[in-house]
Design a protein around this nucleic acid. Structure first.
Length: 931
DNA sequence: CAACACGCCTAA
DNA sequence: TGAGTTAGGCGTGTTG
């Protein structure tokens, strides 16, 4: 029988030995639990070779078994393995304690792999992994499972040796000996098995706020639970559970009489529907903790796990984690946060931006009245509640948010829940555990707090990428080239790895690579690195998947796309991991070697391009100067038979170069798109041929015009070939249009101006646009023009508790104001929207809640918006064309005076003259004389 | 007024 | 946020 692994844990047999439970799904989507016995927890101890016997005796006296093995230490090139003991325990929970006692045994030098969760140890050692397929030889009940009556089935306990990997997803990692034949077919011809269908339940709760305040689980009941199902549950796509008695006219509204009965019903439906995935929006921070507390108070059992256990809500520092054995718990809020750059992450805004669906809303103050009402009013409350679980479900399914996490789980071997909740570290480590094991290398435990902070202090010595100074201003005809997976390809090209870095042993031949950062790495002939090998596997798989995507159906393509994305993420994670202070495998020499090669490479690339100097295009072919010369012999072709473009690098960042093509001579003709592509391809090919494989420079796009402001800030009118056709668009990097701490009015105005300047070359129209926007602001009257408020909203992330801020920040000041008013307060991690209102004092003190400002008739500080939001970005764009501030702010005399006055001047007029003017004002006053 | 620290967000 | 990395611009407010 085969099944796809969803989750894992362990229980104990009557003798106190662990039994691993794998929770999975059969190909048809039926849940199954497989129990495996006989697998034991273990770890490694490196020992002084002269004291092996006494050390073994000492360890055996603790009731552990110990066996001498040869293993390589984690970091550093070693010619021979070290003597180690594999120490086997009975109870996984005892390993932590035995680690200390074993360390105190004379002769024991160091311990390894002492903190590997037992479920992970099991999966790693059996070459199984999250969302991968496994096969179990099940004597009874296994083969006829698919035809057995409904409900889940349990198999076993079977000996753990009767479990093995089944099939091979294209992204499932292969072993070391398959490097010769890259791609999916390489895995012993194993066929990829499509993912089993997942049953998904999304839910949302409504609580009764007291007089419009935030509900608290100590006092406010849960009044509704809405549920959305995919696939439908008993023919229904959604249900709303109601915690009061009412004649419920509709079948999809279940009136439960009271809160307790409603919660019990929720638990019943959960068990009955038996979802693989349980989702909500902000459910980890709100719904689950709330339900947990209400259930505790009302004495409702929440045993919804596939092992019969309860859900577990664990508060971690600033975060809550929810676990249900055998199921995947998904809080969509952090997923949406990490996948999309939005100004706000409320369910309302996320649904609008990502699904294009409006959310129904009920004013918290109205809730109580609606709750006790009936008829249409009550129906409104029900439909509001229903909508929220619907939106959560559709964010998950329509955006296929889970697909890439599934692919990441399959590729890395981590359980899906760990991929969703954790970061790159867990995946990289899970992956490395497997690869190091194949090569007989052990992995250290996680560094303790002291070691981590020592490393963190040290890691300021890690230098990053090189950014070239841009040639500022407008440039025409720019080629964009970049290196494909630069850091991974550097690691492969130079055999950079934990296992190749020279620490204390040197290779017999003495052959080493010396990176610009110093240090030495042995050549692949001596010892091919583990990480370079892994990267090479992953790269080959990605190339293969991208090839297969071209001929795949729509449905297949989205799965393949998730897989190639997962491979890309993983490929790029190894470098970051090596420089991460809390990594098990931290190596500053390794991380520094990678970036130092990167820096010299981009500088080299610039030099190479400029040494090439120019490229010719003749008869539909691009030629280097020497090719042109040799092709034409003594008689250089006549002008008109070829085009020549002179090359200069105008910008570059880490792995990219921007090359200007200057048509040769006064009568030089601009390149066509096709010619630009030819030239770009020629340069890429030429540079690549001079670099060690698999380093590869590729032609990415061509820009007819570009505007480079400063490092990391530029805009281009790019042309890209999509399926044989040229598509053009404006590509903006780093400028205010892509920054969320600027208002929409700025983004819109700047965006349109960029289009006018870059696509149409119409600077005057951009000037007119800016003038009209400024004029509109000067005449601003919120009562007549309330829609503009939305465009004036700035947002900033409230990153830490107020007390930890050393300086005042507008959004933090606002959060405090809101707290004092007793309304809803932004919490740490939220993006806080605000507008700047007119008044006395510092900018940071004049941030206001947009709706509060509107309701209370506060005046917008138009001077701030003109002088700080519109003018600076627009002038940065237009100044290179000789546009000055005065040209943008030209208006009736009266308003001009007003404009040039400092922010708050209107108030200053009415202020007591005795007060000393603020510093900023004094400066502005002085600058008035300049005009 | 220049130099600086802080905070935020983005590029890669 | 129980954590992939560094480079870099810019606004705000303070300091010398």
């Amino acid at each position: 029988m085969i099944f796809q692994i969803l989750d894992a844990n362990y229980v104990y047999d009557p003798d106190g030995f662990p039994i691993v439970q794998l929770f999975g799904t059969t190909p048809s989507g039926r849940p199954v639990t497989v129990q495996a016995s006989g697998f034991r927890p273990y770890f490694y101890a490196r020992i002084d070779e002269r004291r092996i016997d006494s050390a073994i005796d000492g360890i055996r006296e603790m009731g552990l078994s110990a066996e001498a093995v040869d293993r390589f230490r984690p970091v550093g090139y070693q010619r021979r393995p070290s003597k180690m003991l594999k120490v086997v325990a009975k109870d996984p929970k005892s390993v932590r304690d035995f680690r200390e006692s074993v360390l105190s045994v004379p002769g024991v030098l160091e311990v390894y792999e002492t903190d590997v969760l037992f479920k992970n140890r099991f999966l790693i050692d059996l070459d199984l992994g999250g969302m991968r397929w496994a096969e179990v030889e099940a004597g009874n009940g296994g083969s006829d499972l698919e035809t057995a009556p409904a409900g889940s089935a349990t198999i076993g306990p079977v000996p753990y040796t009767s479990l093995r990997p089944a099939g091979a997803g294209p992204a499932v990692a292969g072993g070391a000996e398959r490097e010769k034949v890259p791609g999916a077919e390489a895995r012993g011809g194993a066929k990829a098995i499509p993912n089993a269908p997942l049953r998904t339940l999304a839910f949302d709760i409504e609580c009764l706020p007291l007089h419009g305040a935030m509900p608290s689980p100590e006092t406010s009941p849960v009044i509704m639970v809405s549920l959305a199902f995919d696939p439908p549950y008993k023919g229904r796509e959604d249900l709303v559970l109601v915690g009061r008695d009412l004649d419920c006219p509709r079948g999809d509204v279940l009136c439960c009489g009271g809160e307790r009965a409603m919660l019990a019903r929720f638990v019943e439906i959960l068990k009955d529907y038996d979802p693989d995935v349980l989702a909500g929006y902000n459910s980890a921070e709100f719904d689950f903790p709330y339900l947990e507390e209400r259930a505790r108070r009302l004495n409702v059992e929440v045993r919804v796990g596939r092992d019969g256990g309860p859900w577990r809500v664990r508060k971690i520092v600033n975060q809550t984690r929810v676990e249900i054995t055998g199921r995947i718990v998904v809080d969509l809020l952090p997923l949406v946060r990490s996948s999309f750059s939005l100004k706000r992450y409320t369910l309302r805004n996320a649904s609008l931006e990502l699904l294009g669906v409006e959310k129904h809303d009920v004013d918290p103050k109205e809730m109580e009245a609606l709750w006790t009402s009936s008829g249409d009013d009550f129906a409104r409350l029900v439909s509001y509640s229903r909508r929220d679980s619907y939106l959560a479900l559709h964010l998950l399914t329509d955006l296929q948010l889970l697909d890439k996490y599934i692919a990441l789980a399959q590729t890395s071997g981590s359980l899906l829940q760990d991929v969703i909740d954790g970061g790159q570290t867990g995946m990289v480590e899970n992956f490395l555990f497997r690869k190091f094991q194949e090569r007989g290398r052990v992995i250290p435990p996680k560094p303790d707090a002291d070691l981590s902070s020592a490393r963190a202090a040290q890691s300021s010595e890690l230098k990053g990428g090189e950014v070239l100074e841009p040639k500022k201003g407008l440039v025409e005809d720019v080629l964009i080239l970049d290196y494909r997976s630069l850091y991974p390809s550097i690691m492969m090209a130079h055999n950079l790895c934990y296992s190749t870095v020279v620490t204390d042993e040197r290779p017999p031949s003495g052959g080493v690579v010396k990176p610009p950062s110093g240090g030495e790495f042995v050549l692949p002939g001596e010892a091919p690195g583990i990480v370079p090998g892994v990267l090479s596997d992953l790269l080959a798989q990605r190339t293969d998947i991208k090839r297969r995507m071209k001929s795949a159906s729509e449905e297949e393509r989205s799965i393949l796309d998730a897989q190639q994305y997962a491979l890309k993420i993983l490929l790029n994670s190894f470098y970051g991991y090596s420089g991460y202070a809390r990594a098990r495998l931290y190596s500053l020499p390794l991380a520094n070697a990678v970036t130092s090669f990167g820096r010299t490479n981009i500088l080299n690339t610039k030099r190479m391009v400029e040494e090439i100097g120019s490229v010719y295009v003749r008869d539909g072919k691009a030629l280097l100067p020497e090719e042109m010369a040799s092709a034409s012999g003594d008689s250089f072709p006549a002008v008109g038979e070829f085009k020549r473009f002179d090359l200069s690098v105008v910008y570059g960042d880490t792995d990219s170069v921007f090359i200007r093509l200057k048509p040769f001579g006064g009568s030089g003709v601009k390149p066509t798109l096709e010619e630009a592509e030819l030239v770009g391809g020629k340069i890429a090919e030429t540079v690549t041929s001079r670099l060690p494989p698999p380093m590869e420079l590729v032609f990415e796009a061509f820009a007819r015009r570009g505007l480079f402001l400063v490092k990391k800030r530029y805009a281009l009118w790019v042309f890209e070939k999509v399926g044989g056709e040229w598509r053009d668009k404006i590509k903006v990097r780093g400028m205010e249009t892509v920054r969320r701490d600027w208002c929409e009015l700025t983004s819109k105005t700047l965006n349109r101006s960029l289009e006018l300047v870059l696509m149409e070359g119409r600077v005057e129209e951009a000037v007119d646009l800016a003038k009209s926007v400024i004029d509109r602001l000067q005449r601003l009257d919120l009562r007549k023009d309330p829609e503009i408020l939305e465009d004036l909203v700035l947002t900033r992330r409230y990153t830490k508790s107020t007390a930890s801020y050393k300086n005042k920040q507008p959004h933090v000041q606002l959060a405090e104001k809101m707290r004092a008013r007793g309304g809803p307060v932004p919490s740490v991690g939220d993006r806080v929207p605000f507008v700047i209102v007119r008044g006395r004092g510092l900018f940071v003190d004049r941030a206001e809640d947009p709706s509060y400002a509107l309701e209370n008739g506060l005046l917008i500080d138009t001077d701030y918006y003109i002088n700080k939001q519109i003018l600076p970005p627009l002038l940065r764009l237009l100044a290179p064309f000789g546009v000055s501030k005065e040209q943008l702010v030209c208006c009736p005399e009266q308003q001009r005076l007003f404009d040039l006055a400092p922010p708050g001047a209107a108030v200053a007029k009415g202020r007591a003259p005795s007060g000393p003017p603020a510093e900023g004002q004094e400066q502005k006053q002085k600058s008035l004389f300049d005009f």
